[in-house]
Design a protein around this nucleic acid. Structure first.
Length: 627
RNA sequence: GGUCCCGUAGCUCAGUUGGAUAGAGCAACAGCCUUCUAAGCUGUGGGUCUUUGGUUCGAAUCCAAACGGGAUCACCA
């Protein structure tokens, strides 16, 4: 099938070479003609004046004349302010529509696959709004890249070990209640989260008197190292302004925490875990198991899935081998206390710790190990990490270290860094209880979809299973679209009230447009046939605009894949739906007396519907047949 | 303090590698259901694109500075 823009670019190039001998040093600037001007595509002629030695308008006219002469597909042209607006014939567009399909490019198995890591939760608390953005982005990007023709491997790296899960375990043990998800009726991840919060509460009670002592210069509860640190901070603290004091107080709080009996217990449990203590491991397995059960439910409701799940407990040791080889090759160095570092000052960064003095690994070490494992297992061409932008520095360093260690595949690492999700009231803060829980959020949007649907009172079915499914689709569409329509890089405000809106630039609006199309198709069945005589179709602008928008679908998917940005697809779907509604309002399909025209419109509607469904599907949004 | 990101309508967001008179939605106001689903369509008002310089045929977009907001700089993850 002809790709209009590509064809135009080649054909215009030929025309310009014919006129001026070459096309100049810059590529031709061709863009879809803006709405308020007549034309399909526009050639910007300012850059060509050097070739022609004439004014932009004269140049445009010269090119326009020659181009229309040479190409029967070009019907006419007009010139405004140095812009050459070219009209392709309506016949050209009808032929285009005839060959158009919304189907995706089949993945090319000769190309190296793309690995996408997303979700990557800790196992000490349930998923929240931030995770929701992460999961939706990861799943959408995976779909979009796959649709653009590359194989995708979706992975999840679960942070299942560490001090955080030990905290929940301690609190659970101390409660003595032996609560399980079954006995308590609480979803597994929420149950663990509950104990994590309880630990924190108890910790605060133990920690506060220690903090007071520290501020008074009494370091009796601290070990040697912490005392040294605390002494220095307290000295600074006493000379600081009020604002700076708050900041330093935060650091002292951490030190105070480390002096509590509870933290010592948690640290001891972590040591036992690493030593392989059977009872500890058993409890850890049990409690993590509850969390996974809970996560599975949430993942399913969000509609996300993974091809492979990595667990840090299984990969955290691998980084150490990598560190060893880095030491022997001289890329890394060891300090007197036994800690291992890398010097990145030449790259404008800092020295970075890779192994603690006691030989245990840190976050970076684990990530290095995991990266190596994946590269060896999959030999992907790209490794995409969907992780919040607070970790920009971490991933910069990660990639740099791998490069310095000599791994060529490190060039394929891409940190899909997305912005934080704020609430209208400001940042989400767990201490202030403003964290929006993922499960609650899902319940809420579905409930709201139900309420609004019932208010409208026009659903065609009373089958309760169908209705349940419909409300779920509408609610999830509202939520997903609300989040995915925003450029991932940007920090966004999540307004719960607006997230369940069904009017305007929303998921349900697009669903509604689709449902209308399906309704027409159902009614046309057996009445209109699919064939029509193209020559009897008039050149209506609304028809043409719609075809032109369909034409942009595949390149939008490609651009979206190239830039790891699902919002391009989201905004495209909205634009298409809007244009369809305009068309739908202006013309009737079923009541059109000219059967050729009616069939043509039906075909246009059908392909619009397919495209809407495909585009929304890439975002993980399902379309209802009726609503 | 060093480094990085951001600043577009009252609010939430678009704005392709620099291109024409900066666009949508929400909110407000005014119209359109006897017509394929009104979860829709049409219209009105709303802007010093934070500011100031620079680059050029042309800047919301590129460069510099200032102001404002955020992140990060752990032997945390």
């Amino acid at each position: 099938m002809i790709k209009p823009e590509q064809w135009l670019s080649n054909a215009l190039g030929k025309t310009i070479i014919g006129l001026y001998g070459n096309t100049g040093s810059n590529p031709l600037v061709i863009q879809p003609t803006r709405k308020d001007v007549e034309g399909d595509f526009t050639l910007v002629c300012f850059g060509l004046t050097k070739l022609s030695g004439k004014t932009p308008a004269q140049t445009a006219q010269e090119i326009g004349d020659a181009f229309c002469m040479e190409n029967p597909e070009a019907g006419s042209y007009n010139i405004a302010n140095g812009f050459l607006n070219i009209n392709l014939t309506f016949k050209f567009w009808i032929t285009y529509l005839n060959g158009y399909t919304a189907d995706a490019t089949e993945p090319d198995l000769n190309k190296a696959p793309v690995m996408i890591e997303y979700s990557s939760p800790n196992t000490n608390k349930p998923l929240h709004l931030g995770h929701v953005r992460n999961n939706l982005l990861g799943a959408a990007v995976a779909n979009i890249i796959e649709a653009s023709g590359r194989k995708v491997i979706k992975v999840n790296l679960v942070n299942d070990r560490g001090i955080h899960i030990c905290k929940s375990m301690i609190a659970w043990q101390k409660s003595g209640l032996n609560e399980t998800p079954e006995s308590s009726g609480i979803k597994g991840d929420h149950l663990i989260g509950k104990y994590y919060v309880e630990f924190d509460k108890a910790l605060k009670i133990q920690s506060e008197p220690i903090l007071s002592k520290i501020l008074a210069g009494d370091f009796i509860d601290l070990d040697e190292k912490s005392t040294l640190k605390a002494t220095a901070i307290v000295e600074k603290y006493n000379q600081s302004t009020a604002e700076k004091k708050e900041e330093l107080k935060g650091e002292l709080k951490l030190l105070a925490n480390s002096g509590t009996a509870l933290m010592k217990e948690a640290a001891e449990m972590l040591r036992q875990w690493e030593a392989g203590d059977e009872a500890t491991i058993q409890l850890w397995k049990t409690m993590n198991g509850w969390v996974y059960q809970g996560f599975d439910v949430t993942y399913k409701r969000l509609g996300v899935s993974f091809d492979k799940i990595y667990y840090e407990s299984q990969t955290y040791l691998l980084g150490k081998e990598l560190v060893d080889s880095g030491l022997s090759s001289g890329v890394l160095y060891k300090k007197e206390d036994g800690s291992v570092w890398i010097d990145l000052t030449a790259e404008g960064l800092d020295h970075k710790l890779l192994l603690r003095s006691d030989g245990t690994s840190v976050y970076m070490t684990q990530d290095l190990g995991t990266a190596l494992l994946r590269a060896e297992e999959y030999h992907a061409g790209n490794y995409v990490y969907v992780v919040g932008n607070e970790q920009d520095y971490h991933f910069k360093v990660l990639q740099l270290i791998l490069r310095k260690l000599g791994y060529a595949w490190a060039d394929g690492i891409f940190h899909l860094s997305y912005g934080m999700v704020d609430l209208p009231t400001g940042k989400m803060k767990s201490r202030e209880g403003t964290v929006v829980d993922a499960d609650d959020l899902i319940d809420e949007v579905i409930l709201e979809a139900k309420k609004k649907s019932e208010e409208l009172g026009k659903t065609e079915t009373s089958n309760s299973d169908e209705l349940t499914k419909l409300y779920e689709r509408i609610g999830m569409a509202a939520l997903k679209y609300f989040i995915l329509k925003v450029d991932p890089k940007k920090r966004m405000v999540f307004n719960p009230a607006e997230s369940i809106d069904i009017n305007g630039n929303t998921g349900p609006f697009i669903q509604y447009s689709f449902a209308r199309i399906q309704s027409v198709i159902r009614k046309a069945h057996g009445i209109l046939d699919e064939s029509y005589n193209p020559s009897s179709i008039e050149n209506e602008p609304a028809h043409r605009t719609l075809i032109r928008t369909l034409e942009q679908f595949h390149e939008t998917v490609q651009a979206s894949a190239d830039s790891y940005n699902p919002s391009l697809v989201a905004n495209y779907a909205y634009e298409l739906a809007k244009q369809f509604n305009h068309f739908y309002h202006e013309f009737s399909i079923l009541k059109e007396e000219n059967k050729d025209l009616a069939s043509f419109r039906l075909e246009l509607a059908r392909k619009t519907g397919q495209t809407l469904e495909k585009a929304m599907g890439l975002l993980g949004i399902e379309m209802p047949e009726r609503m």
